Computed example of a mutant assay.
Amino acid sequence: MNFDNIEFLPLDQTYQLVQGFSCGDNWIDGYLKQPNNALFDHNLGISSTTTLMYEGEVIAFFTANCSHLEIPMEEAREIGLQDDLFIPAIEVKFLGVRTDLKQIGIGTYLLQFIIGKVLEITPIFTCRYIFLWSVEDKVKYYQNRYFQTTGKEENGLHLMKFLVPTYFTIEE
């Protein structure tokens, strides 16, 4: 697969095509395919779902939105906060790669794309974390890519967080 030929398109342009998509997780597939879930959230501007297209087929997708993450008191003190435990973040609510295309690097490509976009906007809009919900069998995958588990679980998914690097300018 030539990754240079992958297109990123919003769900409202590809909704009919996602009906044949499966990442192998019924709950995640259901979110993508049911009109009262991903498409509804996308059209209301609650979250944005982006599909990855290759040769006219949906090969992956992700759903994300601006959010915040509550961090533990110790972590807040480490970065100099006194009271506020809520940090600006990008939440990746869902991420899926088509079942028959796993293990060829699409997930890594997609994760690099997401991190790259967050790094691009962070100097202007400030984002301290990317957090995402991971299925059980992908926790180690994300840990190997610098995501940490938070200990929070919901609907069988594990909340993972990635600290976005910050860059300080020192004036002389």
Rank of each mutant, 00 (worst) to 15 (best):
E120V: 00
K93A: 14
Y129C: 03
F125S: 11
N144V: 02
I28M: 12
C127D: 00
Q82R: 08
Q143R: 10
L52Y: 03
E154F: 10
P123Q: 02
A60S: 13
G151H: 06
L81A: 10
E153D: 11
I124S: 15
C127G: 00
I115A: 07
Y15I: 10
Q112R: 07
N36S: 11
T50P: 00
L11N: 07
Y109S: 11
I104K: 10
D25S: 03
E74C: 06
F147E: 07
T108L: 08
E74N: 08
L157N: 09
S47L: 11
N36T: 12
L81Y: 07
S47M: 10
L110D: 05
M1V: 14
V135C: 01
D100W: 12
I115S: 04
V118C: 08
F113T: 10
L157M: 13
E136M: 00
S134G: 02
S134Q: 01
F40Q: 05
M1N: 07
P165G: 14
K138I: 00
K93C: 14
K117P: 06
N5I: 05
D41V: 02
G24T: 03
G116W: 09
I6C: 09
E91H: 10
G151I: 06
R77A: 14
T166G: 13
M73C: 03
F94W: 14
E154H: 12
L17M: 13
L159N: 08
L39G: 06
L9E: 14
E136G: 00
E75C: 01
I59Y: 02
N5P: 03
Q19D: 11
V118D: 05
T149C: 12
F125M: 13
F94L: 08
K138H: 04
K102Q: 15
N43R: 12
N155V: 08
A60Q: 06
L119M: 15
G56R: 14
T63C: 05
G80I: 05
F62Q: 02
T150P: 04
V58E: 06
T51G: 00
K138C: 01
S22L: 11
E55G: 01
T122W: 06
W27C: 00
M1G: 13
A64H: 06
A38V: 13
K117F: 15
Y142C: 01
E75R: 02
T150A: 04
L159R: 14
F62D: 04
S48Q: 12
V135L: 01
G96T: 15
I79W: 04
E172G: 13
E172F: 03
Y15A: 04
